[in-house]
């Protein structure tokens, strides 16, 4: 497994998403930025409240409770306990995977 990114392309940010929505559906730039912001805030709030999020076609954000385990500082090799914690995991849905696979096919 390796991280793969097209370094030629600038990364997509909230501001750019907002600009793009503005061009596509004509809401004001200010409203678009607020909605983009509101969308990610709603996702984060929901996850904090313990809700998994399932967006069909895009993917699922699920929550997992991890037990405590002994850890180690890799630099000093010192043992540091890792506390029980909750993590969020994203799994891309079928449609998103297909679209991404289309990219892979294009590169071959």
């Amino acid at each position: 497994m390796a991280k793969y990114v097209d370094k030629e392309l600038p990364s997509l940010t909230k501001a750019q998403i907002a600009e793009e929505i503005h061009q596509r559906i004509g809401l004001s730039k200010k409203e678009c930025l607020e909605i983009v912001q509101g969308f990610f805030t709603a996702l984060a709030d929901s996850l904090e409240e313990g809700y998994a999020i399932r967006i069909s076609g895009f993917g699922n954000f699920t929550l997992h409770d991890k037990g405590p385990r002994p850890g180690r500082n890799p630099r000093t090799l010192e043992e540091v306990p890792i506390e029980a914690r909750r993590v969020v995991v994203f799994h891309a849905g079928q449609k998103l995977r297909k679209r991404v696979d289309g990219y892979a096919a294009k590169r071959k």
Partner: peptide, 8 residues
Amino acid sequence: LAEARVIE
């Protein structure tokens, strides 16, 4: 993502 662009 379909063009391997990073989203931050």
